[in-house]
């Protein structure tokens, strides 16, 4: 009997938990407030007035559009690469037992387990060592490397649930390897891959630490924001962009959650 579940929580615990959650969410909500402030020069609170004009100003900024475009392109390609590599790796690790699977898991997780600055500087020095000039592809290279783990985690969790007997059943009924993949494996891991892909996209879209080392003079949206943070030029536009970034990352995360909510959890390990 788990009668304890119906017991009410002590008041102190309730307050502490609620306060903790508030602490997590209030700062993000503030971003939405500031996107509409009339104050241009400082972070005055409460805002002296509210206006929609900054949305229009941000809309007409070509540098924001350029940065956004680059971020979306990088995130798309990096996600595609991560989907292929992560799925292959997860399939190999979960379908067969072989020597060294632990090592492979570790290798996949390492790029996010080690601080991003290490990945960044390592890639940068490798690029300069090999005399590769910074380009769109150097950014993608870095992003794909740490996005693999997100896809991998989601796919491995789902592969574990697609019992081996389903694959055997398919082969038993006359489906060869390719048919089994198409008619049984893919439909069963599809949502997990979609979720992994969305999280990878969100991760890449938001990444700044590694990107600063691999982008050269190019500006992704996070890099654009970082420059504004270090040397604020037009705070209201930054506010609007910040709100946009929250919204763009929010949707794939929510979608990924709904795709995987029954059963396995969305990869708990983030960046």
């Amino acid at each position: 009997m788990r009668s304890d579940r119906s017991a009410a929580a002590p008041l102190g615990l309730k307050i502490a938990a609620a306060a903790g959650l508030l602490f997590l969410h209030v700062p993000i909500l503030l971003i939405f407030l500031y996107a509409f402030t009339t104050e241009e020069k400082s972070y005055q609170f409460p805002p002296p007035g509210y206006t929609l004009q900054w949305l229009a100003v941000a809309w007409n900024r070509p540098d924001v559009w350029q940065a956004l475009g680059l971020s979306v392109r990088v995130a798309s390609i990096a996600t595609a690469v991560a989907l292929v590599l992560g799925t292959l790796c997860a399939a190999a690790v979960s379908q067969t037992k072989f020597f060294g699977r632990e090592t492979i898991s570790l290798l996949v997780i390492l790029p996010i387990a080690l601080p991003g600055i290490i990945t960044g500087i390592a890639l940068r020095s490798a690029f300069s060592f090999a005399e590769i000039p910074f380009s769109f592809w150097t950014i993608v290279l870095g992003h794909a490397t740490f996005c693999v783990v997100v896809v991998y985690n989601n796919a491995v969790a789902r592969f574990r649930r697609v019992s081996g007997s389903l694959i055997e059943a398919s082969m038993d009924l006359g489906a060869d390897g390719f048919q089994t993949f198409r008619y049984v494996i893919l439909p069963n891991i599809g949502t997990a891959l979609l979720a992994g892909g969305m999280l990878a996209f969100a991760l890449s879209f938001d990444e700044v630490i590694v990107t600063t080392f691999t982008a050269g003079q190019q500006q992704t949206l996070p890099i654009w924001m970082l420059e504004e943070l270090v040397r604020p030029r037009q705070r209201p536009v930054t506010n609007v962009v910040a709100m946009l970034v929250v919204l763009v990352t929010l949707l794939p995360i929510l979608a990924a959650y709904y795709l995987t909510r029954d059963g396995d959890q969305v990869a708990g390990a983030g960046k």
Binding site: S163, S165, L166, E168, A169, S170, D172, L173, G174, A175, D176, Q179, Y183, V184, P187, N188
Partner: peptide
């Protein structure tokens, strides 16, 4: 040769009819 599995191994993403028709489909 066909097998009836201990845990039945029905395909969870397919309807019952599609499950039964699977062998003929492939």
């Amino acid at each position: 040769v066909n097998t009836v599995f201990q845990d039945y191994a029905l395909f969870p993403h397919l309807s019952i009819l599609e499950n039964v028709a699977y062998g003929l489909m492939v």
